[in-house]
Design a protein around this nucleic acid. Structure first.
Length: 497
DNA sequence: TTAGGGTTAG
């Protein structure tokens, strides 16, 4: 077990894989007078990320300021995206690069950095960056505000989000119908349709609300399974002289399915046909998925076949929806048949497709098979995302295969895809199952690492580990955990921008 | 990043 602890120590720091990857990038960064900057390849972002994660502030600062890397907004954005689950490091990198003698950040990089800071709930940094953006005449733009308001809403501060939206112009960003609709959508997607509707009523004249505004609100009510309210909103829309579109119908169709009103959905679909409504791939995907989720696989298959007969081409999303419902309500074997069929027709599955299939395989205990598909993703040049890793880790944990789940975790740490809050929570919980003191040590290490990466563990998690450590007489380590806890929610001074 | 379909457990 001590092996496990020491292995965890090495994650992202000095594993062999990492060191090998670092070499080339490190060379690029430390060479002081290269004849010309070497052209950057696809993998440079990955290599640079590992380097950024490895170096301390001082060394990183020295390296970033050399002229040997040809920084481009694209490269910087790639790095910021890869470091998404290591917010403090991402911001440190962004801040250091701001001092670069030649390179200056782009609008999109500022937006990424603002998103990261907002996710860390470091609002002081958010506004500092907004001000800096403005000073450099790079923004802030409507997208910047979409990011900020969305983060406030998901942090449980919708009122603050409303105030921010209403104050956009004070930051030099004009409000218009687009930004209004975007903000309504942010509220609706967080299941605050009622709040969005109230705001809509107040501002609809000022912004000249259009079909999109109404569709957003209707969809918001559908998301909280309130189809009658959605229909009311649409009635209001027609009364104000706006015509529903195919998107409107698709929203309602999906709303019926979401609310479990399968009969209504079917009737609505028939009515659309009767009225000779032009249907599209979204209509059919909604039907296939809706029927499938409610367990009506035959109906789902029938609609899928009908779609092909009508000459509407399924999309990757259609196949994904079908594969998912087959996994859930039929058999994973049949899902694989459809998956292979999709490949034969020349479609390239994306990470969502792999995700549903891998989840399906995990669910029936076919872990080896799931791992095979994880490897197949690479062949398809499809990067596995953190959700896929989380599914595999979760199921390994559920099966009591703690070592295997740690192996997958290590694979993530060695640069493939950084773990997120869920990953840590899943693993830490699993460390209590076997009631072994060495598992508890791993849990502690994970907790410290996640705090270091800007995640805020629940109090419960801290207490659980602290209690365990105190019971096993591990006072020193408990102190370390306490230090991590006090650090939580506050970024160290050098992260301040 | 102006709206609709596909990932996610209870």
């Amino acid at each position: 077990m001590i092996g496990n602890v020491s292995r965890l120590h090495t994650i992202n720091r000095s594993s062999v894989v990492c060191s090998l990857k670092f070499k080339s990038s490190f060379h690029n960064l430390t060479t002081t007078t290269p004849p010309s900057p070497p052209p950057l390849e696809e993998d440079d972002a990955a290599g640079l990320c590992n380097l950024i994660l490895k170096l301390d502030l001082q060394t990183l600062s020295e390296n970033l300021e050399t002229n040997s890397v040809c920084w481009t907004p694209d490269l910087v954005n790639k790095i910021l995206k890869r470091l998404w689950n290591h917010g403090p490091k991402a911001l440190e990198f962004f801040r250091l690069l701001e001092r670069h003698p030649i390179y200056t950040h782009s609008t999109t990089s500022f937006d990424h950095a603002i998103d990261i800071a907002a996710r860390l709930r470091d609002y002081k940094t958010v506004w500092t960056l907004v001000a800096r953006m403005r000073k450099r005449r790079l923004g802030p733009n409507p997208k910047t505000f979409a990011i900020i308001t969305e983060r406030f809403v998901s942090a449980g501060k919708p009122d603050k989000a409303v105030r921010v939206f209403l104050s956009m112009h004070e930051h030099g960003c004009q409000q218009d119908l687009n930004s209004f609709n975007t903000f309504l959508d942010v509220l609706c997607k967080s299941k605050r349709a009622e709040m969005a509707y109230n705001l809509f009523k107040v501002l609809k004249r000022r912004f000249k609300a259009d079909t999109i505004s109404y569709n957003i609100i209707a969809n918001g009510f559908c998301l909280i399974k309130r189809t009658p309210r959605a229909l009311e909103v649409l009635r209001e829309m027609v009364e104000s002289g706006l015509e529903p579109t195919l998107k409107t119908y698709n929203i309602i169709l999906n709303g019926y399915f979401k609310a479990g009103q399968i009969k209504e959905a079917w009737q609505f679909f028939l009515e659309m046909k009767r009225r000779k409504c032009v249907m599209d791939v979204v209509t059919y995907t909604t039907m296939v998925h809706g029927f499938g989720v409610s367990g009506e696989i035959q109906k789902a298959r029938q609609v899928f076949d009908e779609m092909l007969e009508t000459g509407i081409l399924p999309s990757v999303a259609t196949y994904t929806a079908f594969i998912q419902v087959l996994c859930k309500k039929d058999t994973v074997e049949n899902a694989i048949v459809v998956f292979e069929e999709m490949l034969k027709k020349g479609y390239t599955p994306n990470s969502t497709t792999y995700s549903v299939l891998i989840r399906g395989l995990c669910h029936v205990g076919k872990m080896d098979n799931a791992m095979e598909y994880l490897d197949r993703m690479k062949q398809d040049e499809c990067e596995p995302n953190v959700q896929i890793f989380n599914v595999i880790i979760r199921y390994y944990c559920d099966e009591g295969e703690i070592e295997k789940s740690l192996e997958v975790f290590e694979r993530m740490g060695s640069g493939e895809c950084l773990p997120n809050l869920d990953t840590y929570n899943i693993l830490i919980s699993a460390m209590f199952v076997r009631k072994r003191s060495d598992d508890l040590m791993v849990a502690g290490k994970l907790l410290i690492e996640m705090v270091d990466r800007g995640f805020v563990p629940r109090k419960f998690t801290f207490n659980r580990i602290l209690n365990g450590l105190l019971l096993t007489g591990n006072q020193d380590f408990a102190q370390e955990i306490l230090r991590a806890q006090s650090k939580c929610g506050r970024l160290p001074r050098h992260f301040r921008l």
